[in-house]
Design a protein around this nucleic acid. Structure first.
Lengths: 205, 205
DNA sequence: ACCTGAACACCGTTCAAGT
DNA sequence: ACCTGAACACCGTTCAAGT
């Protein structure tokens, strides 16, 4: 049939992205397929490849947007007030974000990009931006500690928070009941920060 | 052609399991396919379905064996000595286990079983056994705390340890360099235990 | 320039037919 | 009883052909 031009290139791109996002929300990464996307937007499968290099490229685009939304949500957590409370608030914001859309969130950890393709730089930058938010929240609690210590603690806390939310979202290992996740998160942050603050005057460890 | 009986049912089952495990080690879950397994063991694809219900059943079997091996490794960590050192030793044993075979390890978190099928009970039991090891290691540090506190802390620590090892294995988010994972793990355990021990005499939180 | 649809090389799973 | 191989309903991706 040839050209239709019902949509501009940008419109088509958005159409593909939103159909894919819905598909993932419904059925996870394994439920995503180029042919099913095409069916839903009423184009032929080949058309997708005008907008994206391949499915990995599409998925990476969706992941980028997801990270943007998370950064936005974390940035909206009010500053000021008790520094410890702020860390707790950031952690529960993260948990809530992941819980709001588990299948979409899982994408970030399920989806592996072929080594040849590689991850876009923008990706790494978004994670740096994320870490910067946590680092800033830790700084008031760091006492005489240097930036290296803060950086490390931000990563440790992030990993811990991620571990809890990932295990509570995992269907298989119901070690962490979903409704316990909040309590576990608070326990982690509280105990870790206790240790972090207690050691604030010491050099090295 | 019909029956061949080159292998007993058990032998065939093991053949399938080991070919699949190798395939996963090479190319991850997405590299696993019934047809490729069949090619490698020189049987037709249909034969797999005499030994396993479907691919999910096969993968769950592999995951079960993996958990058995982890429990074995953790159980071999020497008891006695400084209780805090023991927790550190368990954490690095876990990390080393995951790092030794990242793709196989990732299976546990990438592979989602359809809700209809459900996870075998043996699975849940293995996780309980895992948690019991960590709980036992925490008990000497728990002071007057009750079992609920110990249970919760075991889960929090496990989630944290899992978070670090999962992020360091993720190709995409190179927030945690693989060679830093050990240092982060030590930081987590040290600070968390500091908080855990400091609060030991307090009631509630 | 944009889009189609056939084509190619793959999947998981089932099941009649053969030994 | 055990195994095959064709069959069915799917994939991702490419690309000549059409408008």
């Amino acid at each position: 049939m040839g050209r239709r031009s019902l949509h501009t290139a940008e419109e088509l791109r958005e159409l593909i992205i939103s159909a894919s996002t819905e598909l993932i929300q419904e059925a996870g990464l394994s439920g995503l397929s180029a042919r099913e996307i095409a069916r839903r937007i009423n184009y032929s499968p080949g058309t997708l490849y005008n907008s994206f290099e391949n499915l990995d490229d599409l998925v990476l685009t969706i992941e980028g947007r997801l990270l943007d939304r998370l950064i936005e949500a974390l940035a909206a957590v009010p500053a000021g007030g008790d520094p410890r409370e702020r860390v707790h608030a950031l952690a529960s914001c993260y948990l809530a974000f992941a819980a709001r859309n588990p299948k979409l969130w899982n994408l970030l950890f399920e989806h592996h990009v072929p080594v040849a393709q590689g991850v876009p730089d923008s990706y790494q930058q978004k994670f740096e931006a994320l870490m910067a938010i946590i680092e800033d929240a830790l700084r008031p609690l760091a006492g005489a500690r240097g930036d290296d210590d803060i950086k490390r603690s931000a990563r440790v806390l992030w990993a811990g928070v991620h571990g809890i939310s990932s295990l509570s979202a995992a269907d298989k290992l119901s070690i962490i009941a979903a409704d316990d996740a909040g309590a576990l998160m608070d326990d982690l942050v509280r105990n870790y920060l206790n240790g972090f603050e207690a050691a604030r005057s010491q050099a090295g460890s």
